[in-house]
Amino acid sequence: MRRFLFLLALLFTLAHGGAADAHVRSESHSVWELNGGHVDLVMIIPALEAARLERGRSQPSDAALEAYLAQRVYPLADGRRCALVPPIQALSARAGYRRYDFTFACPTAKKMTIRSGAFFDLVPSHINYAQIQNARTGEFTEQLVTRDRQMLEVAGGEADRLKAAGFPDFVRMGVMHILTGVDHMSFLVGLVLISRRVKDLLFVITGFTLGHSLTLALAVTGVLRPQADHIDALVALTIALIGLENVAVQAQRPGAVAAAFAAALAAMVGLKLAGFGALPALLLLGAGLFGANYLLACGQVRDAARVRLAITVVFGLIHGFGFAAGLLDEPLPPQRLGELLFGFNVGVEMGQLALVGAVAGLAWALGRVRLAPPRPIVVDAAAAGLVGVGAFWFVTRAF
């Protein structure tokens, strides 16, 4: 029965982490075609988003929606805003959507940038999926536009730098993504702390690598792209779970810890149903079931190393989507995705091995000179810290 609940929870978490409540997610789509100094833009707006201009009471007129978009969505060339060439055309669209065509004339084709700032003033968590094609070179990229990233360089500057980058540059990007990501580093430190033997550490690192390699590739190639803020919250939850596992094992009360964890997530489900919080109720429910069963399993299995291998594969799946967010912030050259993915993944592995090696080496060195406090004290203190910081990040990201 416990295995069944565990699998059910896993399916809930993975299936609904990115897709649950997709019908109420705030999003829009844009298609940009660059042809020298001539730029054509097609904006696809769900009717739900358009109604936000009228506070949901009705649909705005074409003129009102066109004026709103024209002030917030446009290209720039060499730092100067491109001129809008009238008229804006309202195109036919499938039921539930509105579609508009904009044409812009830019004074130059150098250092082209696009700005997509629509709807962020109404819904801060809004996401725009931008497709960008250069008609002269045939290059095609897809980028995510968020409130904190409304400007995208599409020619010159960072865009050209990445196209000219070599394999070592991709590796360096992966290394820096690990060494500058505080949440990913916290999780890796937690893996070291719960591993009492080298074999245990090899199990968890292997599982984590398998998981994040898969979802990194799926996200960057566009096969799966869960909502970024959901993934950020789940990454924080994995950090708290690593700490809670130690608490459950050391206190020898896995049932109580699992019940407390499940109750906390159930309370968040209740708040979501009452209208508070950004995470979908099904995602919270799945995370609660999965986490509670994970804590029960690790607290009752005599050799938890093999259980952790399976669990860290799941954790790796979540972190892989988080790694992908760093790549999706770049104007990715589609013809070099394979090389970029391989190099970035190599860099991620180098970064995590360097971090794990440094932490393990420091612990060994302190032990050799007899300066290290007893391991149970260190692990318990670190576990408490992981629970605290993971829970804080999870709650703040959930609300």
Results as ranks from 00 to 15, higher is better:
Gly211Lys: 01
Leu48Cys: 15
Phe342Asp: 13
Phe290Gln: 01
Ile132Glu: 02
Leu144Glu: 11
Gln250Glu: 14
Phe261Ile: 08
Leu353Trp: 03
Gln335Val: 13
Pro86Gln: 06
Thr108His: 08
Pro75Trp: 01
Leu309Phe: 08
Tyr100Gly: 09
Thr209Phe: 02
Arg136Thr: 15
Ala135Gln: 08
Ala304His: 09
Leu8His: 06
Leu371Tyr: 11
Ala64Gly: 14
Arg80Cys: 09
Gly157His: 06
Gln133Thr: 14
Met350Ser: 13
Arg149Ile: 08
Gln300Val: 13
Ala287Gly: 07
Phe392Thr: 14
Leu386Thr: 09
Gly288Ala: 01
Thr180Met: 11
Pro226Gly: 10
Arg2Gln: 15
Thr113Gly: 09
Gln352Ile: 11
Ala264Phe: 02
Val301Gly: 09
Gly166Ala: 08
Gly288Pro: 00
Lys163Cys: 12
Gly277Gln: 02
Arg306Glu: 14
Leu234Ala: 11
Lys111Leu: 15
Leu279Thr: 04
Met176Leu: 15
Val42His: 03
Val204Leu: 05
Ser30Phe: 09
Tyr129Ile: 15
Gly79Pro: 01
Ala258Met: 00
Gly138Pro: 04
Arg72Ala: 07
Ala310Cys: 09
Ile194Asp: 05
His212Gly: 09
Pro86Gly: 05
Phe290Val: 06
Leu10His: 03
Ala63Ser: 13
Val220Gln: 03
Leu353Tyr: 04
Val346Lys: 01
Arg308Gly: 08
Leu327Gln: 09
Ser28Gln: 11
Leu386Gln: 03
Val379Asn: 07
Gly207Cys: 03
Asp183Arg: 05
Ala267Asn: 05
Ser116Gln: 14
Gly56Asp: 05
Gly320Trp: 01
Phe12Asn: 04
Leu179Cys: 09
Thr13Met: 12
Ala20Lys: 00
Val247Met: 01
Ile377Asn: 15
Arg302Met: 10
Val356Leu: 07
Leu53Asp: 08
Arg25Asn: 11
Gly288Phe: 00
Met112Lys: 00
Gly156Cys: 02
Ala67Ile: 11
Gly156Leu: 02
Leu210Glu: 11
Ala360Thr: 12
His230Trp: 10
His319Val: 09
Phe208Leu: 07
Thr215Asp: 00
Arg197Leu: 13
Asp62Arg: 07
Glu330Cys: 15
Val369Ile: 12
Val189Arg: 02
Ala360Val: 10
Gly322Asp: 07
Leu65Gly: 03
Ala165Asn: 07
Glu339Phe: 06
Pro60Asn: 07
Phe276Val: 15
Gly138His: 01
Met173Trp: 08
Phe12Trp: 00
Asp380Cys: 12
Ala382Tyr: 02
Ala130Lys: 04
Met185Phe: 10
Ala260Glu: 00
Phe276Ile: 14
Ala93Asn: 06
Gly299Ala: 00
Arg98Leu: 12
His177Pro: 07
Phe167Lys: 01
Gly326Tyr: 04
Gly277Met: 01
Leu341Pro: 04
Ser195Gln: 04
Met350Phe: 10
Glu33Leu: 12
Arg253Val: 06
Val42Gly: 08
Glu339Trp: 08
Ala50Ser: 09
Phe140Val: 15
Arg115Val: 13
Ala240Ser: 04
Ala77Lys: 00
Ser125Ala: 15
Ala236Gln: 03
Phe392Trp: 13
Thr137Trp: 03
Ser92Thr: 14
Gly207Trp: 00
Val123Pro: 12
Val356Thr: 08
